[in-house]
Design a protein around this nucleic acid. Structure first.
Lengths: 335, 335
DNA sequence: CGTTAAAATGTAACGGGTTTCATTTGGTTA
DNA sequence: TAACCAAATGAAACCCGTTACATTTTAACG
């Protein structure tokens, strides 16, 4: 591998001149510039950016902690992150953490060991160890989905409570009185916020909240299927099911259809996220659309601003949601 | 940020001793080691790994060129890559290229500028520019899906032709005589290989190959839906449709159901990949299962071996496939 | 032609580790 | 106690760019 000194020798100039010829061509005479360029081409010189980054102390890399890239919603967020990062000359280092705090901590260490400038977290968990703690100073981190309550951190999120309430209201307006809720992972604030929105709607409509209508889930197809199995077996079957994400809804939908329930005539189903598959279900899924790509873009942009000292407070960016009514929800059965 | 010199001063030893105390503790007397560790903790020293990488000339980073992380199959491959990389102390830098050759080239440059040691490509395209060319030497690259014909490069792949043939045979055995094929992107060798397998089966069964039964697609839900629309409108409707991936199949399936066709009674549908959604379709999709995670793992493992000089030839690893028969395929209608 | 400012170029320090080689320390043996 | 070897430690080079500062060249003007 050639280095700048070889180029300098070949061109008969100093290394400083080579560096300038490449970085600020106008600072070098055309004649010299020419000589340098010829030498660069001859030896196929490519600057060692590792050296540059080391020297500058800036890596222009950002670690993204993603519970699982296999989640279609996260895939969209990642996509957005990459776009914004590329625009501003940064690289995203994607970490598939499987929600494991040890793995998260390992990747977070990349920031503490100068391998990355900052970190984007998609879960509500602080991955840094105590050694980084500086009171009165923001950590080099933003959250692209969930609000973290124990730490002051910029966040891009959705009014999950309002969105869940809107969806629940939609179901109530269709005449549903017993609405099941298939929840997300216990550890996620999202789960609690959406549950709160669900309760808000019930309260507002004067319906009673029934613990028995809450089913656990973990945002996977399988967990939706499992919860649906329980719902079918339950005594007083609900006429609608609100799932805290689309994958759960699709899993549940399949289960209901397997046992011969018609959607939405016998049971309505609603999801959350509007992943691409939702429009292609049978029937197409009523859901909440989130601007996933913009979550990622916004988060990256915020993080870079923070790193470059352009912001010192931790903003909370609330993205808009949209209720998408498709064919999976309909009037409650009259029986 | 503290550095090794501060630690050395505080501990009253040389920087060399600090380095050794941390890297090879047995080479330092227990007493000194203790002093060093106390100093390390006191200043919260974390070695600057950027400096280490720069010094060593090894980044222990691998660039992965992924056309789109939103593709569920690729998401599984990525997952596998990450596991294998972590095991061997490497980091994956994920690049969402959208199939754009300029973006690919930009990321490939990271290898040429010493920011990454090697590259994993998921498409059949050489992202490197000519300047890296060394005849008789392998590029620091492996392909995790598609065989590249113009370049000698280790590859992990599937016998796509055999798999497509197996699926087509399955349909033929069900009595289907007119089988449509919804293809993948033109640029992908996968598309051609699967087409070849489809033809193989037809030939073997003595059925005639009909160009009119070939429909273009690009591995998205929407393209499946579009192709299905054309199939429905076609004169002599096929009784089965083989889609070159599951997303296409799911898109097509929805379209058929929308117009009232029953699956598989009226029309059979088969996919390729066995993504998680396929088991949760209605009806569940007959497909070809590929060990996606192992594609990623194998590719990373191969690349690291190559980088570490453990292999000098370019192996071609063929992974096994499995025909998964579910309810979306059935006997051809007798009419 | 001499003076002076501006432009061009060169020299060398710097960043933060690792590692080689040299030196010192410590313990063992005669 | 002297001699010797191994273990422990230190000094300094090294990786490769960038850049502040010093020096040289060029051009312009009186």
């Amino acid at each position: 591998m050639s280095n700048i000194r070889q180029v300098a020798n070949l061109a008969g100039v100093s290394v400083a001149t080579v560096s300038r010829a490449l970085q600020q061509p106008e600072r070098v005479s055309p004649k010299t510039r020419n000589k340098v360029m010829l030498a660069v081409n001859e030896v196929g010189y490519k600057p060692n950016l590792m050296a540059v980054k080391f020297r500058s102390g800036k890596t222009h890399s950002l670690v993204a902690l993603v519970p699982t890239v296999a989640n279609v919603f996260f895939a969209r967020v990642i996509s957005g992150m990459q776009v914004a990062a590329a625009q501003r000359g940064y690289t995203i280092l994607l970490a598939n953490t499987l929600g494991d705090e040890t793995i998260e901590a390992n990747y977070a260490k990349m920031v503490q060991t100068s391998q990355a400038d900052g970190l984007i977290q998609l879960r509500a968990h602080n991955p840094f160890d105590a050694s980084i703690n500086k009171p009165n100073e923001l950590l080099p981190m933003v959250n692209a989905c969930e609000v973290m309550h124990d730490i002051n951190c910029p966040v891009v999120t959705l009014d999950n409570r309002a969105a869940a309430k809107a969806m629940t209201m939609h179901l109530i307006e269709q005449g549903h009185k017993r609405i099941a809720l298939i929840k997300g992972p216990q550890s996620s604030p999202l789960t609690r916020e959406r549950l709160a929105g669900y309760r808000d709607a019930l309260t507002e409509a004067g319906l009673t909240f029934d613990e028995a209508l809450l089913y656990p889930g973990d945002f996977t197809l399988q967990s939706g299927h499992d919860a649906a199995t329980k719902i079918i077996a339950s005594e007083h079957r609900p006429s609608a099911v609100f799932c805290e994400n689309d994958e759960t809804a699709i899993g549940a939908m399949q289960c209901f259809k397997q046992v011969g329930l018609r959607i939405p005539q016998d049971i309505s189903i609603a999801g959350f996220d509007d992943i691409s598959f939702s429009a292609f279900c049978d029937p197409p899924l009523t859901t909440i659309a989130q601007p996933a790509e913009e979550f990622g873009q916004s988060a990256v942009s915020l993080l870079i601003d923070l790193l470059e000292g352009k912001i010192t407070k931790a903003p909370k960016v609330i993205m808009p949601f949209e209720l998408i009514v498709r064919a999976s929800t309909g009037p409650a059965p009259t029986s």
